[in-house]
Structure formats: C-alpha cells, structure tokens
Design a binder for these strands. Sequence first.
DNA 1: AAAAGGATCACCT
DNA 2: GGTGATCCTTTTT
Length: 200
Amino acid sequence: MTKLSKQFFYRDTVIVAQELLGKYFVSNLKDGKVVGKIVETEAYKGIDDLACHASKGKTNRTEALFGETGRLYIYLNYGIFWLTNIVAHRDGVGAVLIRAAEITEGFDLVNNRLSNHRFVKPNDKPASGPGKFSVAFGINKDFHKEDVTESCKIYIEDRGVTISKFDLVESKRIGVDYAGHCKDFLWRYYIKNNTYISKK
DNA sequence: AAAAGGATCACCT
DNA sequence: GGTGATCCTTTTT
C-alpha cells in the first residue's frame, strides 16, 4: 500500500486517467477519514481539447492545469458543485476528473456530509458522480492546488488492485456537448459492471 | 460593476 | 432518457 508519486502523474493524461481506476482515494480531515476506490475518471488534455478549461487560455482559474503534476485542480461547476481534478500530463497541460468512487471507509461521515448539502441527498451510492464525490470526501476550494503526492490530508493509495483491459470501459465524456469535434473523444473510463459509476 | 456560463443532481416518464 | 432547478465564480466591460 503505497502513496502515488509525482512520477505517476507525470505521464500522458489519458494513461493516468486509466490507471487511477482501482486506486484508493483518501481524505483525512478534521472531522474524520474517508476512503474510496476510484471507479470512474475522465481525461482533459491539452490546449487543443475544447472541453479542457486550459483551451481558453491561461488565467488565474486555469493556471493550475499548466503547472506541477500531482496537485489538485478544484473549480466550481453550476455555481453549486466543487469538482475534483488531479493535474496530470507529460508535457504541457492536462488533468484527470475523478467522477465516482466506491466508499470503503467512513460511511457515517459521508452520510453526514451529504445530508448537510443543499443539492444532494444521501443514498446507497454516495460518490457516484463528480459533484457527490467532492461532497463525500469533503473537498472544496480550500484544497485547490493541494499536492496529493505530499499532503497528509488528501492522497491516493495503490493497494495492489489492477484493472485488466477487459474490465476497462472507455466512452464519451459526460456533459461536454459544447466541445465541437472534441465532444466524442473516448476519454471517459470506468470499471466494467461496477455499481458505483455515475451512469452507463 | 455587470453578465454569462456551466466537466451536475434529483426526479419524472 | 430527458427535463428543470439552481447560484457562485470567472471573465469581461
């Protein structure tokens, strides 16, 4: 059980997105610890990817995407949800959106967090979707640029689970119909037949 | 100072 | 599978 390193994220964004499946996401905050197996991710890669915020250029908001790998890129979506991304690229720009996880530890805390949120309700799939994922793990703006390869609050563990290519499903990314020719890229990945993905 | 834009969710059919 | 609710940050003037 080892913590993912800087090198892990310093590779092609698509590869990192695939290999994050089966890894364990850990948040250890003041109010307790939550652990979950990552079951769904999406790659946002390069300034030519119209779905990637970096395609709009380098601004205060998107600056992190151009920076050091292994750090979190957190941004607000629909004025409501903080979405959790990890900066990952080999040369240039990119990040992996964490879309869903299978909670393995900290169920009560997750339940409390969902209950206290305005727009989500507790259920049996508490982290099946990027908005709910962030709520479940207590992630918000405060963790923007947190380095998951060094932090003791937010980090990712390799517990020896590997997903065979037969269990790896690739599909179109969700909610990016505005992205022109990029909208059909098969840059969403999830574990086949897993119950906790956001949608088929 | 003002406007626009959503990498969603829950609920309905 | 489709629709409506919802509102804060970023971006632009």
